[in-house]
Every structure is written in structure tokens, then in C-alpha cells.
Design a protein around this nucleic acid. Structure first.
Lengths: 102, 102
DNA sequence: GAATTATTTCGATGATCATCTAACAATTGA
DNA sequence: TCAATTGTTAGATGATCATCGAAATAATTC
């Protein structure tokens, strides 16, 4: 298995995080993770092909918003909520709250 | 003078706001406005041509982050801090705070 | 080992973006 | 009216992006 790259908490870039969150599909993923916790890649019901979703998961992971855990045939994605809170206090909660007011 | 378009507070789109803030040049503008208040377009000391800055000011205005006031030969830009707080509570403050930790 | 399942990667496409120069528009002051 | 100042707009360019289908990778099961 290839090693998956996860940036360290103190290396997270605000611009990259904001950019990642600015895409509606990726924000949907983040919301789902916040509400329901860790999920396998294939369990998001979103209007995009698996190739497109894989791309979005990569953007989220490389920006430091999510963590991907490989287990057998699956890849489980989770929010790096504590890391985000440590690096950018209040940001994730504000975005999640804002994302509810459509 | 042309009328400048400013979206209403309840129409602000989270995606557009996050996207606008994800650009380092635009974030610099927002930080300056937050710290020093209303400024004319030409008084930002940023490494870009006036055409490029004008583009960034437009993105900020159309996302609802800033307000542009025309006065004579100048255009004064200010943060719509109250509107942002009303629509997306805590978001601006979290971003501003995060932008200090390089 | 072959088939199945989950996901990534490759290669392509059309769209959007930041950036620039140059031209334009609007206001003010001489 | 002319010149100077401030800022926008037009048009172009190269880069990046979201998206897709198809091929590839990796793990599991038969």
C-alpha cells in the first residue's frame, strides 16, 4: 500500500482549508463527517462519479481537513476536528454552523 | 456612475465567501480592512497591478465581504463585518484569528 | 489464481481563474 | 477644455480546476 500523505497540524494552510471548504461537494462531505463520523469513501451519496469523489477526498486530505484510514478493501475518512480546532480555533464550527443556514 | 452591486445579507453564499477568502491577496485586503477600517482602493500596498487588485475587490464585493463606497475620484472599501456576523456567526473572527498564525 | 469489490490514477475536456497590458471612464482642478 | 488622478474594463494568456470514462491497483473471496 502507498503511504497516504497527511499534513501535520502545525503545517495546515488557512488558504488551502478555506479553498477546500469552498466547494459545495466537499462541504457536503465535511458536513456528513461532522454529523455521522467516520465513513468509507463509497458511502457518500453524492451526484458525482467515483473518480470525481476520489479527487475531492484527496483535496480534503491534503488540506488537512480529513484523515484517511486504509482498512482492507475500504478507506475510511474522518474529520480532523481536533487538529483543525487546535490550528484554527472556531473555524470548523463556524463553517458547519454557517452551512446549515442555506 | 454605475451602480455597484452588493448582495443582501441574507443572500450571502457561504461557498462564495470561503472561496473569496481562500486567496492570499484577498485575505490580505480583508485583514487590513479589519485592522485599519475603510480604505481607498489605491492605498493597499500589494504586489499586483491595479487591474488585478480591481478584480480582487470585485470578488470581495460580490461575495458580500466588502462594501464599496464611491466618493469623487476614490472608491472606499470597508468590511461588512456586521452583515457577515449576522449571516455566518463567528466565521470572520475565526478566519481573522487564523490568518494571524502563519 | 481468477473473479469481485473499492478506490485511485491516467488522460482528456471545458470552465474558471489570477494575472497582465492597454484602453477607457469618471472626477477634479487648473 | 485640458491634464492629472483613480479606478474599471477589455482582451489575452497560462494555470488550475471539476468532471468524466477507462484503465490500473489493491485487498478479499472463491
Amino acid at each position: 500500500m502507498r503511504e497516504l500523505h497527511h499534513p501535520k497540524t502545525n503545517q495546515l494552510q488557512l488558504s488551502a482549508v478555506l479553498y477546500a471548504l469552498s466547494d459545495p461537494t466537499r462541504l457536503s462531505v465535511v458536513r456528513r463527517l461532522a454529523k455521522e463520523g467516520e465513513r468509507a469513501c463509497g458511502t457518500f451519496d453524492l451526484p458525482a462519479t467515483k473518480a470525481t469523489l476520489s479527487h475531492h477526498f484527496k483535496v480534503l486530505r491534503e488540506s488537512g481537513i480529513t484523515h484517511t484510514r486504509v482498512e482492507g478493501i475500504y478507506r475510511y475518512i474522518s474529520l480532523r476536528a481536533e487538529d483543525l480546532e487546535a490550528r484554527f480555533p472556531g473555524l470548523l464550527q463556524a463553517v458547519l454552523k454557517a452551512s446549515k443556514t442555506r
